[in-house]
Simulated assay, not measured.
Amino acid sequence: MAARLVAPALTVAELMVDPAHRRRGIGRTLLTRFTADWPAAWLCTHPDAPAATMYRRDGWEEHGNFAVDEYPLVVFTWQAR
């Protein structure tokens, strides 16, 4: 997995959609456009975050869980097709 987390992979540091505007495809569109010119990308999020379902559905691969200050996180990686 470590090879997927280094250049030329894009690191998605923050992507948030206001709760009042979720479930309209905004996050998916932003992420698709943001990763369009990259061969790979990765991000971390809470395993139960609303967006985690979207990542799984959109083909992002889920890798091991870990915690930071007892806050659970999971790594997702994506490869261009």
Rank of each mutant, 00 (worst) to 15 (best):
R33H: 14
F34I: 00
P50Y: 02
A20L: 09
T45I: 12
D37C: 05
R24Q: 15
A49R: 01
A9C: 02
L31H: 02
L31P: 06
A49K: 00
R33K: 10
L30G: 00
V17W: 04
T29Y: 13
H46P: 02
L31Q: 04
P19S: 09
T45K: 08
A52W: 00
F34Q: 02
R33V: 02
P50N: 04
A51T: 07
T11L: 14
A36F: 08
L43H: 08
G27P: 00
V6T: 04
W42F: 15
I26K: 15
E14K: 05
L43F: 06
G25T: 04
V17D: 09
D37F: 02
T29F: 14
A52E: 03
A49N: 02
C44Y: 07
T11F: 14
R24G: 09
A7L: 08
D18R: 13
R28D: 12
V17P: 12
F34R: 06
T45R: 03
H21R: 14
H21D: 15
M16P: 08
W38K: 11
L15G: 03
T29E: 07
A7Q: 09
A9T: 01
P39S: 11
R23E: 09
T35Q: 03
M54Q: 12
A49E: 03
A7Y: 04
A40T: 03
M54R: 10
R24S: 10
A52P: 01
P50H: 05
T29N: 11
W42A: 09
R33M: 10
P8K: 01
P47Q: 10
V17R: 06
A36S: 07
L10M: 06
A52Y: 01
L30W: 05
A51M: 07
L30A: 10
A20R: 08
M16N: 13
T53H: 14
A51N: 08
A7C: 06
G27R: 02
A9N: 00
W42K: 10
L30F: 07
R22V: 15
A41K: 11
L30I: 10
A41Y: 04
T32S: 13
L10R: 11
M16W: 14
L10P: 01
G27C: 03
L15K: 06
P50E: 09
D48M: 05
F34P: 00
T35N: 04
A36N: 02
M54S: 14
R24K: 12
I26H: 15
P8L: 11
C44E: 12
W38D: 06
D48N: 06
L30R: 02
L31W: 04
R28E: 15
R33L: 04
P47A: 09
R33E: 13
R28K: 13
W42E: 08
T32Y: 06
T35E: 09
L30V: 06
R24D: 11
H46M: 11
P19M: 00
L31D: 04
R28F: 07
I26Y: 12
R22E: 10
A13S: 02
T29S: 14
W38Q: 14
D18A: 05
F34M: 10
F34N: 00
A20T: 08
T29W: 06
R33G: 09
A40Q: 11
D18K: 03
V6H: 02
T35S: 09
A20E: 12
D48L: 11
L31S: 01
R28L: 13
T53W: 11
R24M: 11
A13Q: 09
D48T: 07
